[in-house]
Amino acid sequence: MSATTTTTDPDAARRAPVPAPPRRRRPPRPGRILLVAVLAIAAGYFLLPVYWLVVAATKSTDRLYGSFGLWFDDPRLLSNLGDIFSYDDHVYLRWVLNSALYAGLGATLATLFSAAAGFALAKYRFRGREAVFKTVLAGVLLPQTALALPLYLMFSQISLVNTYWAVLLPSIASPFGVYLCRVYAESAVPDSLLEAARVDGAHETRIFFGLVLRIMSPALVTVFLFQFVGIWNNYFLPLVMLSDDRKYPVTLGLTTWKGAADRVPELTQYTIGGAFVSVIPLALAILVLQRYWRTGLTEGSVKE
């Protein structure tokens, strides 16, 4: 897989100049065997449900219950996929696109807003700064699902429920993103650079968009991914906010299918196949982007 090479390259680059070479290519010792065994068992554990999903996605509704779960039986992935995508006027495709919209747009805006706020909190001294930061921190510690219910009642008073905004709006405030960006900006954006830019007569907005954003990009990737996955995986908020199934994200859509499966048995298979398809893009994104994520977190959240 291409993902594996992308993840290893930077490590190699970073570690190459280190004089002490990692101990490799030694004859297997008991410790080594134990190490390999533990890592392999862990890999088996993490892959088991995914493997089951792959196998199950190829089965017919009938064989799903009637055959051994961990091996193929009359595989028919393509016809299954065709059924899933065409069911109920291509509603599944709508759900995937909705998820992409909620997560993509939501995470982009959240990242931008967090970057601006984090930068302001890190590099400006103004009245109320600490109060704002403390409030943001409290926001990090607040369980988001506890907010969903009152948020629903508020949104219903202003006719926002059952709209795209109902899911998007609460997704674009990321207190944790602000926190990360502030910590990162504090250490990574040099004051001297800002001073120099100001001396050159650059406007604050220009400095931010032209200079700061680029310097903060590792932290921004982290915030983006964090938020993207968070929104993509969210269930409670859309469950509460949306009623029109054409606005559902994948998570909500699939549970609806599962709930209706006793009346329409083939929906069980569609739920599984739909889950399979929905996992693929995110899995790929995660595999490709995890190295950026790593760097971002290193510099940001865990600064001593």
Binding site: Y152, L153, F155, S156, Q157, S159, V161, N162, V240, S243
Partner: peptide
Amino acid sequence: ASLKAGTPP
């Protein structure tokens, strides 16, 4: 929820 919100089907 929709009744409470005044947006029922």
